[in-house]
Amino acid sequence: MTLLYPYRHYMVSIVLLASITLVSQAFRTELGLINIALIHLIPVLVIALHGKMGSTMMVTASSVLMFDLLYVPPKYSFDVHDLTYIWSFIIFFAVGYTISYQAKRIQTNAIKEIFLNTLSHDLKTPLSSILGNASILLKEQIIDPKTRRDVLIQINDSSQRMNRLVSNLLDSARLQDTQSALRMEWCDFEDIVGVALQEFRYNPKQSQIVISIDPQLKLFWGDCALLVRLIVNLIDNALKYTDEGKTIRLTITETGETIKIICFNESQPIKKADLKNMFDRFYRLEHSADIGGSGIGLSICRDIVSAHNGEIEAYNVQNGVCFEITFSVTKSPSGGLKELL
Protein backbone atom coordinates (compact mmCIF):
# COMPACT_ATOMS: atom_id res chain seq x y z
CA MET A 1 0.00 0.00 0.00
CA THR A 2 2.79 2.38 0.91
CA LEU A 3 4.35 1.48 -2.42
CA LEU A 4 1.36 2.89 -4.30
CA TYR A 5 1.01 5.94 -2.07
CA PRO A 6 2.93 8.37 -4.33
CA TYR A 7 0.54 7.42 -7.17
CA ARG A 8 -2.62 7.88 -5.13
CA HIS A 9 -3.82 10.81 -7.28
CA TYR A 10 -3.67 8.63 -10.40
CA MET A 11 -5.60 5.87 -8.60
CA VAL A 12 -8.31 8.26 -7.44
CA SER A 13 -8.70 9.72 -10.92
CA ILE A 14 -9.05 6.29 -12.53
CA VAL A 15 -11.73 5.28 -10.01
CA LEU A 16 -13.57 8.59 -10.52
CA LEU A 17 -13.46 8.32 -14.30
CA ALA A 18 -14.72 4.74 -14.20
CA SER A 19 -17.72 5.64 -12.04
CA ILE A 20 -18.50 8.70 -14.15
CA THR A 21 -18.45 6.54 -17.26
CA LEU A 22 -20.83 4.08 -15.61
CA VAL A 23 -23.29 6.84 -14.61
CA SER A 24 -23.08 8.64 -17.95
CA GLN A 25 -23.56 5.47 -19.93
CA ALA A 26 -26.58 4.48 -17.84
CA PHE A 27 -28.31 7.87 -18.04
CA ARG A 28 -26.99 9.05 -21.38
CA THR A 29 -30.29 10.11 -22.90
CA GLU A 30 -31.54 11.77 -19.70
CA LEU A 31 -28.38 13.80 -19.18
CA GLY A 32 -27.59 15.05 -22.65
CA LEU A 33 -24.18 15.85 -24.07
CA ILE A 34 -23.61 19.14 -22.23
CA ASN A 35 -24.19 17.67 -18.78
CA ILE A 36 -22.01 14.70 -19.56
CA ALA A 37 -19.25 17.08 -20.59
CA LEU A 38 -19.63 18.97 -17.32
CA ILE A 39 -19.59 15.74 -15.33
CA HIS A 40 -16.30 14.88 -16.98
CA LEU A 41 -14.84 18.02 -15.44
CA ILE A 42 -15.34 16.59 -11.92
CA PRO A 43 -12.22 14.40 -11.80
CA VAL A 44 -10.19 17.29 -13.24
CA LEU A 45 -11.38 19.55 -10.40
CA VAL A 46 -10.82 16.95 -7.69
CA ILE A 47 -7.27 16.18 -8.74
CA ALA A 48 -6.29 19.76 -9.62
CA LEU A 49 -7.11 20.85 -6.06
CA HIS A 50 -4.11 18.83 -4.85
CA GLY A 51 -1.83 21.10 -6.80
CA LYS A 52 0.02 18.34 -8.61
CA MET A 53 0.48 19.41 -12.23
CA GLY A 54 1.47 15.98 -13.54
CA SER A 55 -1.55 14.07 -12.31
CA THR A 56 -3.86 16.97 -13.25
CA MET A 57 -2.72 16.90 -16.87
CA MET A 58 -3.02 13.11 -16.93
CA VAL A 59 -6.59 13.12 -15.64
CA THR A 60 -7.58 15.97 -17.98
CA ALA A 61 -6.26 14.06 -20.97
CA SER A 62 -8.06 10.86 -19.95
CA SER A 63 -11.30 12.76 -19.31
CA VAL A 64 -11.12 14.37 -22.73
CA LEU A 65 -10.31 11.07 -24.41
CA MET A 66 -13.14 9.19 -22.67
CA PHE A 67 -15.59 11.97 -23.52
CA ASP A 68 -14.43 12.01 -27.11
CA LEU A 69 -14.47 8.23 -27.45
CA LEU A 70 -17.86 7.54 -25.91
CA TYR A 71 -20.01 10.62 -26.54
CA VAL A 72 -18.65 12.94 -29.24
CA PRO A 73 -19.95 11.82 -32.62
CA PRO A 74 -18.76 9.66 -34.29
CA LYS A 75 -18.95 7.46 -31.22
CA TYR A 76 -16.31 4.84 -30.36
CA SER A 77 -13.64 6.66 -32.31
CA PHE A 78 -11.23 9.46 -31.52
CA ASP A 79 -12.29 11.33 -34.66
CA VAL A 80 -13.94 14.70 -34.16
CA HIS A 81 -16.26 15.87 -36.93
CA ASP A 82 -17.62 19.01 -35.34
CA LEU A 83 -14.60 21.25 -34.63
CA THR A 84 -16.43 23.18 -31.85
CA TYR A 85 -15.64 20.22 -29.59
CA ILE A 86 -11.97 21.12 -29.85
CA TRP A 87 -12.91 24.22 -27.83
CA SER A 88 -14.41 22.05 -25.13
CA PHE A 89 -11.17 20.11 -24.92
CA ILE A 90 -9.07 23.27 -24.65
CA ILE A 91 -11.34 24.55 -21.88
CA PHE A 92 -10.84 21.26 -20.00
CA PHE A 93 -7.09 21.79 -20.03
CA ALA A 94 -7.36 25.47 -19.11
CA VAL A 95 -9.55 24.65 -16.09
CA GLY A 96 -7.17 21.89 -14.94
CA TYR A 97 -4.09 24.06 -15.31
CA THR A 98 -5.53 27.14 -13.60
CA ILE A 99 -6.89 25.30 -10.56
CA SER A 100 -3.76 23.21 -10.17
CA TYR A 101 -1.54 26.29 -10.34
CA GLN A 102 -3.58 28.19 -7.77
CA ALA A 103 -3.77 25.21 -5.43
CA LYS A 104 -0.01 24.86 -5.54
CA ARG A 105 0.45 28.52 -4.71
CA ILE A 106 -1.86 28.30 -1.72
CA GLN A 107 -0.03 25.22 -0.44
CA THR A 108 3.38 26.88 -0.70
CA ASN A 109 2.07 29.89 1.17
CA ALA A 110 0.67 27.68 3.92
CA ILE A 111 4.00 25.91 4.35
CA LYS A 112 5.81 29.24 4.40
CA GLU A 113 3.46 30.51 7.07
CA ILE A 114 3.93 27.47 9.30
CA PHE A 115 7.66 27.71 8.74
CA LEU A 116 7.78 31.38 9.71
CA ASN A 117 5.50 30.93 12.72
CA THR A 118 7.48 28.03 14.09
CA LEU A 119 10.79 29.66 13.40
CA SER A 120 9.88 32.94 14.97
CA HIS A 121 8.48 31.12 17.99
CA ASP A 122 11.49 28.88 18.38
CA LEU A 123 14.03 31.60 17.85
CA LYS A 124 12.22 34.17 19.94
CA THR A 125 11.65 31.95 22.96
CA PRO A 126 15.31 31.35 23.74
CA LEU A 127 16.15 34.87 22.62
CA SER A 128 13.72 36.42 25.08
CA SER A 129 15.14 34.21 27.79
CA ILE A 130 18.63 35.47 26.97
CA LEU A 131 17.52 39.11 26.81
CA GLY A 132 15.46 38.88 29.98
CA ASN A 133 18.14 37.19 32.00
CA ALA A 134 20.86 39.48 30.72
CA SER A 135 18.83 42.53 31.72
CA ILE A 136 18.42 41.08 35.22
CA LEU A 137 22.20 40.97 35.49
CA LEU A 138 22.49 44.49 34.11
CA LYS A 139 19.83 46.10 36.34
CA GLU A 140 20.10 44.45 39.72
CA GLN A 141 22.91 45.95 41.75
CA ILE A 142 23.15 43.18 44.31
CA ILE A 143 22.41 39.62 43.35
CA ASP A 144 23.22 36.70 45.58
CA PRO A 145 25.65 34.27 43.97
CA LYS A 146 23.11 31.46 43.64
CA THR A 147 20.54 33.54 41.74
CA ARG A 148 23.29 34.97 39.62
CA ARG A 149 24.43 31.48 38.71
CA ASP A 150 20.86 30.37 37.91
CA VAL A 151 20.42 33.35 35.64
CA LEU A 152 23.68 32.57 33.85
CA ILE A 153 22.74 28.91 33.43
CA GLN A 154 19.48 30.04 31.84
CA ILE A 155 21.34 32.26 29.40
CA ASN A 156 23.72 29.45 28.58
CA ASP A 157 20.94 26.89 28.05
CA SER A 158 18.96 29.19 25.79
CA SER A 159 22.01 30.02 23.72
CA GLN A 160 22.76 26.32 23.29
CA ARG A 161 19.20 25.72 22.20
CA MET A 162 19.39 28.51 19.62
CA ASN A 163 22.71 27.18 18.42
CA ARG A 164 21.23 23.72 17.92
CA LEU A 165 18.28 25.14 16.03
CA VAL A 166 20.54 27.13 13.72
CA SER A 167 22.71 24.06 13.09
CA ASN A 168 19.59 22.06 12.31
CA LEU A 169 18.35 24.68 9.88
CA LEU A 170 21.71 24.80 8.12
CA ASP A 171 21.87 21.01 7.85
CA SER A 172 18.28 20.93 6.71
CA ALA A 173 19.09 23.39 3.94
CA ARG A 174 22.06 21.23 2.97
CA LEU A 175 19.81 18.15 2.82
CA GLN A 176 17.26 19.92 0.60
CA ASP A 177 20.00 20.07 -1.95
CA THR A 178 20.77 17.06 -4.09
CA GLN A 179 22.44 13.86 -2.92
CA SER A 180 25.80 15.25 -3.97
CA ALA A 181 25.75 17.52 -0.94
CA LEU A 182 26.63 14.56 1.29
CA ARG A 183 30.24 14.34 2.37
CA MET A 184 30.74 10.62 2.52
CA GLU A 185 33.60 9.08 4.48
CA TRP A 186 34.24 6.24 6.92
CA CYS A 187 32.47 6.96 10.19
CA ASP A 188 32.91 5.33 13.56
CA PHE A 189 29.63 5.41 15.47
CA GLU A 190 31.44 5.25 18.79
CA ASP A 191 33.24 8.42 17.79
CA ILE A 192 30.04 10.02 16.56
CA VAL A 193 28.22 9.31 19.81
CA GLY A 194 31.18 10.77 21.71
CA VAL A 195 31.01 14.01 19.73
CA ALA A 196 27.22 14.15 20.09
CA LEU A 197 27.43 13.73 23.88
CA GLN A 198 29.84 16.69 24.04
CA GLU A 199 26.89 18.94 23.21
CA PHE A 200 25.16 17.90 26.40
CA ARG A 201 28.13 17.98 28.75
CA TYR A 202 26.64 20.78 30.87
CA ASN A 203 23.14 19.30 30.87
CA PRO A 204 22.20 18.19 34.40
CA LYS A 205 20.39 15.14 32.99
CA GLN A 206 23.48 14.12 31.04
CA SER A 207 24.37 11.33 33.47
CA GLN A 208 21.01 9.65 32.82
CA ILE A 209 22.14 8.71 29.33
CA VAL A 210 23.37 5.13 29.17
CA ILE A 211 25.35 4.26 26.07
CA SER A 212 25.98 0.76 24.82
CA ILE A 213 27.73 0.18 21.53
CA ASP A 214 28.60 -3.16 19.98
CA PRO A 215 32.39 -3.38 20.42
CA GLN A 216 32.66 -5.19 17.09
CA LEU A 217 30.84 -2.41 15.22
CA LYS A 218 32.37 -1.83 11.80
CA LEU A 219 32.99 1.55 10.21
CA PHE A 220 30.00 2.96 8.35
CA TRP A 221 30.17 4.81 5.02
CA GLY A 222 28.25 8.03 5.60
CA ASP A 223 28.29 11.75 6.26
CA CYS A 224 29.79 11.87 9.76
CA ALA A 225 28.72 15.44 10.52
CA LEU A 226 25.10 14.64 9.65
CA LEU A 227 25.22 11.42 11.68
CA VAL A 228 26.40 13.46 14.67
CA ARG A 229 23.38 15.71 14.15
CA LEU A 230 21.14 12.64 14.00
CA ILE A 231 22.39 11.38 17.37
CA VAL A 232 22.26 14.89 18.88
CA ASN A 233 18.62 15.29 17.82
CA LEU A 234 17.68 11.84 19.14
CA ILE A 235 19.28 12.54 22.52
CA ASP A 236 17.91 16.09 22.60
CA ASN A 237 14.43 14.75 21.96
CA ALA A 238 14.80 12.04 24.60
CA LEU A 239 16.09 14.54 27.17
CA LYS A 240 13.11 16.82 26.53
CA TYR A 241 10.56 14.15 27.31
CA THR A 242 12.37 12.40 30.15
CA ASP A 243 11.93 13.39 33.78
CA GLU A 244 14.80 13.84 36.17
CA GLY A 245 16.21 10.54 37.35
CA LYS A 246 14.74 8.47 34.51
CA THR A 247 16.88 6.55 32.06
CA ILE A 248 17.73 7.25 28.43
CA ARG A 249 19.38 4.36 26.66
CA LEU A 250 21.21 4.61 23.35
CA THR A 251 22.12 1.25 21.88
CA ILE A 252 23.95 0.57 18.63
CA THR A 253 24.23 -2.97 17.32
CA GLU A 254 25.34 -4.62 14.12
CA THR A 255 24.03 -7.75 12.45
CA GLY A 256 26.37 -8.11 9.49
CA GLU A 257 24.12 -6.44 6.93
CA THR A 258 22.52 -3.79 9.11
CA ILE A 259 23.40 -1.31 11.81
CA LYS A 260 20.63 -0.62 14.30
CA ILE A 261 20.45 2.46 16.50
CA ILE A 262 17.84 2.36 19.25
CA CYS A 263 17.15 5.32 21.48
CA PHE A 264 14.90 4.48 24.42
CA ASN A 265 13.55 6.87 27.00
CA GLU A 266 11.15 6.31 29.86
CA SER A 267 7.94 8.20 29.20
CA GLN A 268 4.19 7.97 28.69
CA PRO A 269 3.17 5.99 25.60
CA ILE A 270 2.69 8.05 22.43
CA LYS A 271 -0.58 7.91 20.46
CA LYS A 272 -0.56 5.72 17.35
CA ALA A 273 -1.20 8.58 14.94
CA ASP A 274 1.53 10.65 16.54
CA LEU A 275 4.08 7.85 16.16
CA LYS A 276 3.87 8.25 12.40
CA ASN A 277 3.37 12.00 12.10
CA MET A 278 6.10 12.91 14.55
CA PHE A 279 8.65 12.87 11.77
CA ASP A 280 6.76 15.47 9.74
CA ARG A 281 8.24 18.91 9.72
CA PHE A 282 6.90 21.21 12.47
CA TYR A 283 4.75 18.48 13.94
CA ARG A 284 4.55 18.66 17.68
CA LEU A 285 2.65 16.48 20.10
CA GLU A 286 -0.49 18.12 21.47
CA HIS A 287 0.52 18.06 25.10
CA SER A 288 4.02 19.28 24.42
CA ALA A 289 3.39 22.95 23.72
CA ASP A 290 5.28 23.86 26.87
CA ILE A 291 8.39 21.92 25.97
CA GLY A 292 11.05 23.87 24.15
CA GLY A 293 11.93 22.71 20.68
CA SER A 294 11.03 23.32 17.14
CA GLY A 295 9.45 20.11 15.94
CA ILE A 296 12.18 20.29 13.35
CA GLY A 297 14.57 17.90 15.08
CA LEU A 298 12.82 14.64 14.27
CA SER A 299 12.05 15.67 10.71
CA ILE A 300 15.75 16.29 10.19
CA CYS A 301 16.45 12.88 11.73
CA ARG A 302 14.20 11.39 9.09
CA ASP A 303 15.89 13.38 6.31
CA ILE A 304 19.36 12.35 7.47
CA VAL A 305 18.32 8.70 7.77
CA SER A 306 16.75 8.60 4.32
CA ALA A 307 19.76 10.38 2.81
CA HIS A 308 21.68 7.31 4.02
CA ASN A 309 19.00 4.97 2.61
CA GLY A 310 17.98 3.93 6.10
CA GLU A 311 14.69 3.73 7.93
CA ILE A 312 13.43 5.37 11.10
CA GLU A 313 10.42 4.47 13.19
CA ALA A 314 9.06 5.09 16.64
CA TYR A 315 7.13 2.66 18.81
CA ASN A 316 5.91 2.28 22.37
CA VAL A 317 7.46 -0.29 24.66
CA GLN A 318 6.86 -1.12 28.29
CA ASN A 319 7.18 2.13 30.30
CA GLY A 320 8.79 4.04 27.46
CA VAL A 321 9.28 4.99 23.85
CA CYS A 322 11.81 3.67 21.34
CA PHE A 323 13.20 5.35 18.24
CA GLU A 324 14.73 2.79 15.96
CA ILE A 325 16.96 3.49 12.99
CA THR A 326 18.15 0.83 10.59
CA PHE A 327 20.98 1.40 8.14
CA SER A 328 21.92 -1.26 5.67
CA VAL A 329 25.64 -1.79 5.33
CA THR A 330 26.39 -1.40 1.63
CA LYS A 331 30.11 -0.86 1.78
CA SER A 332 32.71 -2.39 4.06
CA PRO A 333 36.14 -0.95 4.74
CA SER A 334 38.88 -2.81 2.94
CA GLY A 335 40.78 -5.19 5.19
CA GLY A 336 44.52 -5.63 5.32
CA LEU A 337 45.27 -3.69 8.46
CA LYS A 338 45.12 -6.50 10.95
CA GLU A 339 48.09 -6.32 13.24
CA LEU A 340 49.15 -8.80 15.84
CA LEU A 341 49.94 -7.88 19.40
Binding site: C187, D188, E190, V193, G194, I213, P215, L219, P333
Partner: peptide, 16 residues
Amino acid sequence: RTYINTLRKKIEPDVA
Protein backbone atom coordinates in the same frame (compact mmCIF):
# COMPACT_ATOMS: atom_id res chain seq x y z
CA ARG B 1 39.29 5.60 12.44
CA THR B 2 39.91 1.94 13.17
CA TYR B 3 43.07 2.60 15.19
CA ILE B 4 41.51 5.48 17.10
CA ASN B 5 38.69 3.11 18.01
CA THR B 6 40.98 0.36 19.35
CA LEU B 7 43.28 2.84 21.07
CA ARG B 8 40.35 4.45 22.83
CA LYS B 9 39.22 1.07 24.11
CA LYS B 10 42.65 0.63 25.69
CA ILE B 11 43.17 4.07 27.24
CA GLU B 12 39.77 5.74 27.76
CA PRO B 13 37.82 4.99 30.96
CA ASP B 14 34.55 5.52 29.05
CA VAL B 15 34.80 5.21 25.28
CA ALA B 16 31.59 7.16 24.66
